[in-house]
Amino acid sequence: MKPPIEVNSLTRRFGSFVAVDNISFAVERGEIFGFLGANGAGKTTAIRMLCGLLAPSAGRAYVAGYDVKKQADQVKRHIGYMSQRFSLYQDLTVRENIHFYGGIYGLSPKALQAKTTQMLEELDLESSSHTLIRDLPLGWKQKLAFSVAILHDPQIVFLDEPTGGVDPITRRQFWDLIYEAAHRGVTVFVTTHYMDEAEYCDRVSIMVDGRIEALDTPAALKKAYGAGSMDEVFVQLARPAGKTAK
């Protein structure tokens, strides 16, 4: 069986600028894969290609077994996506948002009903199901957004800085959700600026100037770079990139 994410020599150019430069890696089923890098290192471009939103200039990538270039529609159907910037409609209620996304992915009304009940219960949001999203605390929004992103049981979920600005307790509750999903076999692909969250991942890749400079388990990376924390590893790797500011 193909791994959920398989990337071979993936490259993306914008004019003469190479945003993503020949990257290759594979992510296993149920793995929590941390995708780190400095601002402007090419993370967002890479994620957009993997989600079928941007065609690669060269190289191949398979997500959920589909070619991201030729089968973008299939890719989109089999992944979940959540970003800090956009996830839920602020002017719809909790329930309306769940139904809307369920509808997009073609869930049957019966399945959707069951899912909604289950989700509201898990998130302890039953009493707030008719609350507008904009009236929910940020932490709840993010947890709900994650649950909605995996509503259609995707094999893979992409999380782009899901916990930015969230309080420390809710941040950990959010990671509990990630762990649970991974435990059920969902592959989690996550970016973050919190370096302690990098330690929560099974494996971590660090992108510098469009290339993947390091990829391993947090423990192995710390050992290889003689660092006490992922923060130090990150700074050691990304510092040169920060100096040659773009």
């Binding site: 400095a38 800085e161 600005g165 600026h193 990150f234 700074v235 990304a238 990139a241 920060g242």
Partner: peptide, 11 residues
């Protein structure tokens, strides 16, 4: 420093 990577934050 919100949304800024760890290196730039240190600087």
């Amino acid at each position: 420093t919100t949304g800024v990577d760890a290196v730039s934050r240190r600087e």
